[in-house]
Design a protein around this nucleic acid. Structure first.
Length: 273
DNA sequence: AAACAGGCCTAAA
DNA sequence: TTTAGGCCTGTT
């Protein structure tokens, strides 16, 4: 067994909400209460109690990878204060209370783009099983503690699988969209450059050049992987929320730097009502 | 059985 | 430029 390290658990940090709010699809909570998943080609096992967060990694890996991934480097008191400034509606207080503990992960760009392409016109259990199938068929296999795991396949791997190879996994009409995304990434679309150098609007425009990527998939990718916390994905649940509490009108571009985090609170609140 | 599931594309006004 | 229908597959 590898060593476990622990860090003080900050306020507004709750793994159950983080992994169950719909932003990621590859983490599962075991009977031992530990959330386990694959990211960056490694297995992360993370758990918490009242005072600490526990991880199966070295301090160096924590500093270089997981601290950022789990968003443990962000002050959510400041985030929440900023959100409150931009919302003129009582529901945001309820949503922030309900969703307290959610943090926006900083996931891998390519995997996130593909995951939300797969998510369209689909339900969560099926999204998860499709992603698992894609990884198992075309991702790199590795071992951890004697068990087999699969990284998310590279763009090149999906291209060599081809549309038919992806359709064989029951991805349906999304297969062609995944191929389009892979082609873009192999032919110069640089997701890390979008993350590091593009504004939210520029990133949105770029991502939407991929066939099968529209505003929803693009803004999920921007929010959950490319650090654009002002991205405000509007899906069917958020549409309902806007109709119900905001009289069908919400200018999502005027909600500040952390609009996307507010979106997650609202989403979580409405889904768990 | 028919509708729907965390959208997007295409064709038609 | 906005709107309706269709789409793979699976579940209810």
């Amino acid at each position: 067994m590898s060593d476990i390290i622990s860090y003080k658990r900050p306020p507004h940090f709750d793994l159950d909400k983080i992994f169950d709010c719909g932003q990621s699809f590859r983490f599962e909570k075991g009977d031992d209460g530990v959330w386990e998943g694959v990211a960056f080609g490694r297995v992360l096992r993370v758990s918490q109690d009242e005072t600490n967060v526990y991880l199966n990694c070295t301090e160096e890996e924590y500093e270089n990878i997981w601290k950022r991934y789990l968003c443990l480097d962000e002050d959510y008191d400041a985030v929440n204060a900023d959100i409150k400034k931009h919302f003129d509606n009582a529901v945001i207080d309820l949503a922030m209370q309900a969703g307290d503990g959610i943090r926006i992960l900083r996931q891998e760009p390519w995997e996130t783009l593909c995951s939300f392409i797969i998510s369209q016109n689909n339900n969560i259990p099926r999204i998860k099983s499709l992603i698992t199938a894609v990884c198992k068929s075309y991702g790199e296999e590795f071992e951890y503690n004697g068990k087999k795991y699969y990284a998310f396949p590279t763009p090149e791997a999906l291209l060599s699988a081809g549309e038919d190879g992806l359709k064989a996994l029951k991805t349906g009409f999304r297969a062609g969209y995944l191929i389009s995304a892979a082609e873009h990434c192999v032919n110069g679309m640089d997701l890390c450059k979008i993350r590091d150098e593009y504004t939210y609007e520029q990133g949105l425009a770029e991502l939407c050049t991929v066939k099968g990527v529209g505003p929803k998939v693009a803004s999920c990718t921007l929010l959950f992987a490319l650090g654009k916390t002002s991205a405000f994905p509007v899906d069917v649940w958020i549409k309902k929320t806007i109709d119900k509490y905001f009289d069908g009108k919400l200018d999502t571009s005027s909600l500040g730097e952390y609009a996307g985090i507010a979106q997650q609170y609202l989403f979580y609140y409405e889904r768990n009502l």
